[in-house]
Structures are given as structure tokens and as C-alpha cells.
Design a protein around this nucleic acid. Sequence first.
DNA 1: TATGAATGAGTTTTCATTCAT
DNA 2: CATGAATGAAAACTCATTCAT
Lengths: 202, 202, 202, 202
Amino acid sequence: MARTVNAQARQEKRDLIIQTAVTVFPEHGFSGTTFALLAKKIGISPATILLYFESKEELFRCTVIEPLERFREPFLAFSTYEGTPLEKILAMIDWHVQMVASTSSYLRLVQYVLGQHQRFPQEAEALYHFAEESMNRLTSVIEDGQAAGQLQKLDAREVAWGYICFIQGVGLVNTDEATSPIWDSMRRVGIHMFAPVPVTNP
Amino acid sequence: MARTVNAQARQEKRDLIIQTAVTVFPEHGFSGTTFALLAKKIGISPATILLYFESKEELFRCTVIEPLERFREPFLAFSTYEGTPLEKILAMIDWHVQMVASTSSYLRLVQYVLGQHQRFPQEAEALYHFAEESMNRLTSVIEDGQAAGQLQKLDAREVAWGYICFIQGVGLVNTDEATSPIWDSMRRVGIHMFAPVPVTNP
Amino acid sequence: MARTVNAQARQEKRDLIIQTAVTVFPEHGFSGTTFALLAKKIGISPATILLYFESKEELFRCTVIEPLERFREPFLAFSTYEGTPLEKILAMIDWHVQMVASTSSYLRLVQYVLGQHQRFPQEAEALYHFAEESMNRLTSVIEDGQAAGQLQKLDAREVAWGYICFIQGVGLVNTDEATSPIWDSMRRVGIHMFAPVPVTNP
Amino acid sequence: MARTVNAQARQEKRDLIIQTAVTVFPEHGFSGTTFALLAKKIGISPATILLYFESKEELFRCTVIEPLERFREPFLAFSTYEGTPLEKILAMIDWHVQMVASTSSYLRLVQYVLGQHQRFPQEAEALYHFAEESMNRLTSVIEDGQAAGQLQKLDAREVAWGYICFIQGVGLVNTDEATSPIWDSMRRVGIHMFAPVPVTNP
DNA sequence: TATGAATGAGTTTTCATTCAT
DNA sequence: CATGAATGAAAACTCATTCAT
């Protein structure tokens, strides 16, 4: 029992560290992020962090890989939404743009790792794996939409991968407030990428 | 005359340092890039770099901003190509994808700076300025294409900005060889973003 | 309680560093005094010194200013001695010469700072302040001695300031052993500066 | 002939360097004085200085020792003045105080070396030698004054040495403008050290 | 002769990491 | 479990000195 309590408390503090690291790493870079800075933000001692992670490298690895699990679900939730394929896609774009617009720290961390994939090959690998999974799921939905006549018949995989690149690019290039009209524009551009069949009024 | 020789030699070595820094900074990050590492790659002493740049910060700034001038021309050349607006756009996409596929170091540096724009505000500002210039030029071409009936009438600015995000995202997410078929896919997706009017066979 | 122990240990080590710095700075100068040298003399690592002082400048400032407090008391004790004004002055000279002859490191540090007052204005300011305080106290005693008929009526402030210059000069110019007869000479010269009324044998 | 011209030009530039070094060394200390700083003040290149002095140490040595020759003459000129011994002494004090009050750079360099005599033993030795010579000459004048009944019969060597300490201390401790009344005070105190026989009005 | 360019040795300073408490 | 103290390794940067021109 005590063990359970301890283990839980330990896990919670571990999560707290990772949560802070997710915001700090992309802002200061790997080398620019010091244990002192992290510890100060958390309100603990630098040495304490090393009770939870063997080294800075391990902390970084965990900071990239572990939240991926929790990030995956909302990011990929579109494939289980209720509704037609086009509705799924519209909801997905809404959600993705919203994530990007709120400058999700984790998304910025993803960009940081991808941008330096040679430096962080292991972490980048995990992210590429996730990107491919996203593409696969999205491809299915697109194919469904094409079969249902909601989307024009472009190459579904190409469109899916292109969209994934696009949404990352949107996150990278835009720094506006969440309320900026830019996000609506990006939404519309995103929708267009899937080539929805124009609605005809009979 | 001696002055000219000296000044020229000096400029050449300065350029060599920047050229090396362009490849090293995005690969190792700002803090991870040491004078020792740079100097070794160039084949000079670390102290020598300090003869050409006052500090690491200045070196970084120059590494981001100075090549931008030379980068600008080919990147924006599309607006002066011969041909119809659609031909300009197709050529531009070809060229951009080619740049991305050859993993232009400078493009990766751009991503690095944009991804940490809070950390490098001055450098990011210069890049945003460039992005806006690109968008403006591209917007003109799109409007021309729409007027000529080659492109469907989407919001030209939105499309232009969306494309710029997309091409950055393509560079960020893809790490394949230059010969990979992925680049052809990205080309096609890029073209679709501009909504070319389908050619009808009578 | 643990706090007390820690704080005390910390203060003790801090004092040890300052104590060493008091001897090393005047011997090697500011720039010539390296953390490595100091650390070696103390038997710790150079980095450790930086745990107690933020920078070399701060260490120097503390090394000059903090011991001044402890130095002040014995240096100015003469004004509270028992005895006639002349006896006070004689005792003071005895004591001052003794301090100088034992080459008090702190006195040499004082000389170092005064000699480069433009370079160390803050530290020099503190020392000038102390010198003025010394002069004021000494002036009082001289005036008492003149009123008591023990000293001839010279300008008391002039004599006091002159003596302070003299005793500093004695410390600066003489490097002899503490046992050298030179110190007796300096004592006699010092006494003469106060113009004691000759004792007449009736 | 050409040789003579060159040799003379060489000597002149050498003197210029030393002259600058005399002001810079006591202000910045030995380690704090860089070739770059000196060169900038002179208007030449740092490397040029090393054409005239083998090393920084040698430059310092020459900067201390060589001007001593030129400094000696005015400093010791009192012994050849016209007039009675007391007049000589009064003139000497005038002159010395004036030198000190004009913050003669060389005097400050002397203080710098004396204060760190352990660090600069060779240079300090030369200065001690000069101090002794000064004392000897001054002792003669004092003895003459005493024989002439102008000075009371104190130990002449003691008085001479005490005065030398005093004048150094005056230079060390005072930083006032040359026009400050402090210098008149110091003059009077200096005179008193020689114990002139009071002039009686019959 | 004079100097700009280059650098190796050394300096301050930072920081991940260890360890005793 | 948590942390303050300590430090070795390495960083940016400085500077006396050398050398080719």
C-alpha cells in the first residue's frame, strides 16, 4: 500500500518535471535548458531532477517520447468521430488548428526535434513513427470520403502526408495570437487540400 | 591595393566561417555549437573566429541574416519567370521542393530560428519579414492566374500564406533522400493548393 | 538548527576565502590573482569560490570592505585608551607601527586600492571614508592634548591628516623585518609630528 | 648617418612607449595593462611594441627603471639649490608636494611597485636604492641645517627617512585637485618634521 | 620597419553530476 | 526522499606572442 502511494507520488512528480520540460526545452533548446532553470520553475532542487532521470539526455528523451502517448489520442481522435468522412476531416482540421494556435508546447518540441533529427535520432524516430501512423489513419478517412463522393479522387496518401506537413508548417511559421484571423485562413486552406467536392444547388 | 587584397581575403574567410556555421548551427543547436567544433570543421583555431565576429551571438545573427540576401533571389525568382502565372507557380514549386529536398542547410537554419523565435527575436524578425515579402509576391502571381482563368478564385493571400507554411512544413517533416518519390508527391500536393482549373478535353 | 549549522559553516568558509584573498590580492594584483591560485592556497576547487561570490569583482569588493569593520576597531582603539592625550597618542603610534611592521596584509591591500583608486572607486571610497573617520578621532585627541598643554598648538587637523599619510607611507616604503631598528625610528618621527612639549628638568 | 637618424627615431618611439606605459601601468595594473590598450593610446599596432621590448615583463621593467634617471634629477635637485639648508628644505618640500599634487604618473608607478615589491623584486630594488640615495642626500642637508642652528638636533637619518615615507604617503592617500588647500597643509606638516628652530622676535 | 592575422595558453564562468547529510 | 555543497569538464573569450607580408 505504502508502496503504491509512494509510487504514485513519484509518478506525479516525474510527470510534473516532464510537463515543465516540455515547455522549457523548445524555448531554450537542449543545451540552453539547465537543470537549474527547470528546477526553479518547478520549485525543487536541481539535484532532485536527477533522482527521477539518470541524465539530461534521458530527461529529454522521456520529455519527447512519453507525452507522445497522451498527445496521440486527441491528435488522432478524428478517425473515431461520429459523422461522415468529410465531417471527420473538418473536425480534425478545427482541432489541429486550435492546437497549433494555442501554441501547444509539445508541438513546438516536436518541431525542435524534427528540425534537429540528426542530433536526436532516437526521439525523431519516434515522432516519424507517429507521423506515419497519423498519415495511415488519415489516409483511410480520405479514402472513405472519396468512396462516399465527398472528396475528389486525389492520391489519398499524398494528400494525407501533405496535410501533415502543412499543419506542422503552420505551427512553425505562425506566431500570432490564438484569436488572430490567420487561423481561420489556415483552416480554409487545410480544407481545400482535401479537395472536397463542391456542393451543387440543384 | 594591398588593402583590397586584405579586405577580400578577410571577406572570404568570413564567408567561409558563415558558410560552415550555416550547416553546423541547425545540426547542433545554438548552445551545442561550440567555437571548437566550428573551428575544427573549418580547419582554424577557435580564437580566429573571434577575430571575425565579436561573440557567438553576433556570429549566429550574421549566419542567419547575411545569407538571407543571397537566399532571397532564387527563392523569389518565380515572380520574374517567363510564362503564364500557372507556369510561374509550377516552376516555383519545382524549385522550392528541389531546395527542400536537397536539405538546404539554410532552410534548416530558418526552421531552427522560427521554432525558437522567442529565443532569437531579432533573427526571427528578419525571417518573418522575408516570409511576408514572399507572400506578397506570390499573392500577385496568384491573382494574375485567377484573372487569366488559370486558377480558381480562392482568397489569394490565404493560398499564398498557406503554401509558405506548407513548404516549410515539407522541409521540416521530410528527411528522405533527394531521389525519394516523396518529393514528387509534395509537388503535386503543392500544385493542388493553388487550385488550378482542370483542363477539359473537348 | 540545521540551518544554523549550515549558515555558520558557510560563513566560516566564506571568511576563509576572504582571509586568503586579503593576502593574495595585494601580492599578485587584481588581474594577477586567479581563482586557480586562490583555490589552490585554500585547498578547494576554483569553482567553489564562485559559490560564495558571484564574480571576481564581488570577491575583491568584499575582500576590501568586509575586513574593514574588524580592522577599524584596533586601528581606532587609541581614542578610548586610558590615560592622558599624549599617552593615547604614544600608544597609538606604538600600535600602528607594530601593525605596519608585521606587514598586515590588509594594510597592503589598502595601499593597493588607494594606489589604483581610479580603477577601484567603490572600494577606495570606503577606505577614504575610514581615513576621514580616523582623522576626526585623532583630531579630537590632539586638541585635548593641546588644551592640556602636552602638545604645542599646531593645527590639529593638519597634524592628524599628516600623520595618517605618514603611517601609510611608512607601510608602503619599508619592507624590513619586524625586528628592524627602523621601526623605532619611525616611532620617534611619528611622535615628533605631534609636537609634544619638551619636558623640562627644573 | 642613416644609422644615427634611425637610432634616434627608434629611441624616440621607445621613449614614447615608455612614457605612455608610465601612465597606463599604475592605472590598470600590470596584468590589466594590455598591449592593445597601450598601442591604442600611442596610435600604433600592439605588435610594434614588441619590436622595442622583448616582452611585457621587460617593458614593465624599463618603464619603472629608465624614467628613474630623469626623475632623479628634479627630485634630488634640492641638495644643489642656492641658499641655506633650511631654504633648501623648504624649496624641496614645495617641489615634492607640487609633484605629488600634480599626481605625477611616475610617482604612482613607484607606489604600485613598492606596494607589490614581492611581485616585482627587481624593480622595487631599484626604487629602494633611489630612496636610500635620497635619504643620504637629505641627511646631509639636515645635518648642515642643524650645524647652522636652523634645525633642532634630531637624528638626521631618522628625519630624512621619515620624510621620505611621509611624502610617499601623501601621494598615496590624497587624491584632491592640485588646487586643494590640502597641499598647503601637507607642506606645513612636512616642514614641521624637520623641526626648524622657531624664529624669535627680539 | 610596421602590422594584420593567427593561435596556444590561460582566465572567468557555467553546469551536469556526485555525494554527504 | 530531498537538497546544499562541491567539483571536473568544458564553454566563451582574452591576450601575449609569433610570423608572413
